[in-house]
Amino acid sequence: MLIREFVDQDWAQVWPIFAEVIRAQETFTYDPAMTAEQSYDMWVEPPPGRTVVAVDGGRVLGTAKMGTNRPGPGAHVSTASFMVAADARGRGVGTALCRDALAWARARGYAGMQFNAVAQSNRSAVDIYRREGFEVVGTVPGAFRHPTLGRVGLHVMYLEF
């Protein structure tokens, strides 16, 4: 598996992953009715941010976006988001994307990385982030409406560099 910079031609493979994830409504707080164009604008980070894909051969297995979490006085903290194709989960794609984002943020001198809204029920993501050193610094109870579990908490997670 190779993680590389996203190029516009990748969208044809990223969009189905993105659509699958948001339509499931199990992990992201994005509108499940978003169009491909709206999704592209939300996912593809302009510089100085970065968007990447994890590929195996010519197939995109997952994608990540990263950048500054907040402007101005918060600009020293980074953030990132990750999506992995359903049939590629459990194969280390999410961990590889997370490690790539962390390396990118450290190389750019950020003081840490913050995840603003990690669904408490997304155990695989929470476990990956904890293994990489993140801590849950707060949970907003019932802030995420899961399609089968009902209202679950949204974690704010942080890793200081």
Rank of each mutant, 00 (worst) to 15 (best):
D87F: 09
D87K: 03
A88Y: 09
A88F: 09
A88Q: 07
R89Q: 11
R89G: 11
R89D: 06
G90I: 11
G90L: 02
G90C: 10
G90V: 08
G90R: 05
G90D: 03
R91M: 01
R91C: 02
R91P: 01
R91H: 08
R91I: 07
G92A: 10
G92I: 15
G92C: 12
V93I: 15
G94E: 01
G94M: 01
G94A: 02
G94S: 01
G94Y: 00
T95Y: 07
T95Q: 05
T95G: 07
T95N: 05
A96R: 12
A96F: 04
A96S: 09
L97D: 13
L97M: 12
L97C: 11
C98H: 14
C98V: 15
C98P: 15
R99Q: 11
R99D: 12
R99Y: 00
D100Q: 03
D100I: 01
A101M: 03
A101V: 00
A101G: 06
A101N: 06
A101H: 02
L102M: 07
L102S: 06
L102C: 02
A103K: 04
A103M: 07
W104E: 02
W104I: 06
A105Y: 07
R106C: 09
R106S: 09
R106F: 11
R106A: 15
R106D: 13
A107I: 01
A107G: 02
R108Y: 03
G109T: 01
Y110A: 14
Y110E: 14
Y110K: 14
Y110T: 15
Y110M: 12
A111Y: 06
A111E: 09
A111W: 02
A111M: 12
A111H: 07
G112Q: 08
G112E: 07
M113D: 15
Q114T: 09
Q114K: 13
Q114E: 13
Q114M: 14
F115Q: 13
F115D: 14
F115M: 12
N116P: 08
N116M: 10
N116G: 10
N116Y: 08
N116A: 13
A117P: 06
A117D: 06
V118C: 00
V118I: 08
V118T: 03
V118Q: 02
V118G: 02
A119C: 08
Q120M: 05
Q120V: 03
S121L: 03
S121F: 00
S121W: 01
S121R: 07
N122L: 06
N122W: 05
N122D: 10
N122C: 12
N122P: 15
R123F: 07
R123M: 10
S124N: 03
S124R: 00
S124V: 04
S124G: 03
S124I: 05
A125I: 06
V126I: 10
D127F: 03
D127Q: 10
I128V: 13
Y129M: 04
Y129I: 03
Y129R: 04
R130W: 08
R130F: 11
R130K: 14
R131G: 07
R131E: 06
R131A: 15
E132Q: 11
E132W: 04
E132L: 04
G133T: 15
G133D: 14
G133L: 04
G133Q: 10
F134H: 01
E135M: 13
V136I: 08
V137M: 15
V137A: 15
V137I: 15
V137T: 14
V137N: 13
G138R: 00
G138M: 01
G138V: 09
G138L: 02
T139Q: 14
T139Y: 12
V140T: 13
V140D: 14
V140E: 11
V140F: 12
